[in-house]
């Protein structure tokens, strides 16, 4: 019996890991792009505003012209929505709604594959939004004096980014990032809502009946052990990275 349970839980955990890995691979870079978007200073009407201001003084309209940064604004609204609603809801919407709206039916492939892809899309987008805020904090948290010191020393913008600010950013980002990544490990269980067969789903199946057993509660407790061990390993890894970066302040 134990062998059957462990076998089922392990293959469930493999699915958990798969979703975890694909989410990180997708959302770490996407989050950086989103953070650049939210920091975008592109203001298409700024010049018009300046000109009007020079000609006729300040007004509500000239203030609007300077304030209106469409990319930053749009990105901030999207991030606000994604962070302000449950991932479970986003998952349901992404999995079911396209099938209702699109004339060709659901864009997701049938079966487990489709569930995995839909879950990956929802998780990547959701986590990218969280990561973008962490990146933004890291980028903006490096004092401007660092950049100015580089400029005064004749460095190019590129050199300042790679040689001066990047490592300081990473140092700032690692602690909040490790929290978020450990949350992600646990959040993967939310994918169960669209019947993605991760480890909790596997454990639960012994309660409601499968593999010839039913009413077994202890396999569910076992899933906790998997999470604990995996998160323990991640904690060790992040601790190591933090120590590697502790030689400066």
């Amino acid at each position: 019996m134990l062998a059957t349970v462990l076998g089922a839980l392990s293959s469930g955990f493999l699915q958990t890991l798969k979703l975890f890995a694909i989410t990180l691979i997708g959302s770490l870079p996407l989050g950086l792009i989103i953070s650049f978007g939210s920091m975008s200073r592109w203001a298409p009407f700024a010049r018009l505003g300046n000109r009007l201001e020079a000609a006729g003084g300040e007004s509500k309209f000239t203030h609007f012209c300077e304030w209106f940064k469409p990319i930053s604004l749009l990105v901030k609204v999207i991030v606000w929505i994604v962070r302000g609603t449950p991932l479970m809801l986003q998952l349901i919407i992404i999995f079911y709604i396209p099938g209702q709206l699109l004339p060709g039916g659901s864009p997701w492939p049938a079966g487990d594959n489709g569930r995995f892809i839909a879950a990956a899309v929802a998780f990547i987008f959701n986590y990218a939004c969280y990561f973008s805020e962490i990146y933004r904090g890291g980028i903006q948290g490096v004092p401007v004096g660092q950049q100015e010191a580089g400029q005064v020393l004749g460095m190019t913008k590129r050199q300042i980014f790679f040689k001066v600010t990047l490592l300081q950013m990473i140092k700032r980002i690692v602690p909040p990032m490790s929290n978020e990544i450990i949350t992600l490990v646990k959040d993967t269980s939310i994918a169960r809502i669209i019947s993605f067969q991760e480890i909790i789903w596997a454990g639960y199946s012994f309660l409601k009946g499968s593999h010839g057993y039913s009413g077994l509660i202890w396999p569910l407790f076992f899933t906790g052990v998997y999470y604990l061990v995996f998160n323990g390993l991640l904690t060790l890894l992040f601790g190591w990275v933090e120590r590697r970066l502790s030689y400066f302040r």
Binding site: G145, Q146, A149, Q151, V152, G154, M155, T156, K171, Y247
Partner: peptide, 19 residues
């Protein structure tokens, strides 16, 4: 960038690169 090199600047708050 090149013209800057005529000048050096020492800041009130040092701004050394910590790493």
């Amino acid at each position: 960038r090149l013209k800057r090199l005529h000048f050096g600047l020492v800041f009130q708050s040092f701004n050394l690169f910590p790493q």
